[in-house]
Amino acid sequence: MAWTWTLETAAGDVIRRSEDFESRGDAESWIGEAFGDLVTDGVDQARLFEGENEIYGPMSLHADE
């Protein structure tokens, strides 16, 4: 199954989904590298999915939370 992020506003409104990743590690590496750009684009939080199953979230992308 593919791993993806749902990228959201602080209110939980979905902005978009990430690309598909082959592993959880790849997905987590991507968000670690991209979070600065995501925040600049208005993303406040993210949820990690394996297929349609939510693994965890919401995870804030802001350092103060």
Rank of each mutant, 00 (worst) to 15 (best):
M1D: 15
W3T: 06
W3R: 04
T4S: 14
T4V: 13
W5M: 10
T6D: 13
T6P: 02
E8L: 01
E8M: 06
T9K: 15
T9V: 09
A10G: 15
G12W: 12
D13W: 05
D13E: 13
V14S: 08
V14T: 14
R16P: 07
D20N: 14
F21D: 07
S23N: 13
R24G: 14
R24M: 14
D26V: 07
A27N: 03
A27H: 02
A27C: 06
A27F: 00
S29F: 08
W30N: 05
W30T: 03
W30A: 05
W30H: 09
I31S: 03
G32L: 02
E33P: 03
E33D: 13
A34N: 04
F35H: 10
G36P: 07
G36K: 09
D37E: 14
D37L: 11
L38P: 00
L38F: 09
V39P: 05
T40L: 10
T40G: 08
D41L: 10
D41N: 14
D44S: 12
Q45W: 00
R47P: 01
L48H: 01
F49I: 05
F49R: 07
G51D: 12
G51M: 05
E52A: 10
N53F: 09
N53Y: 08
N53H: 14
Y56I: 04
Y56C: 02
M59D: 05
S60K: 00
L61D: 02
L61S: 04
L61T: 03
H62M: 11
D64H: 08
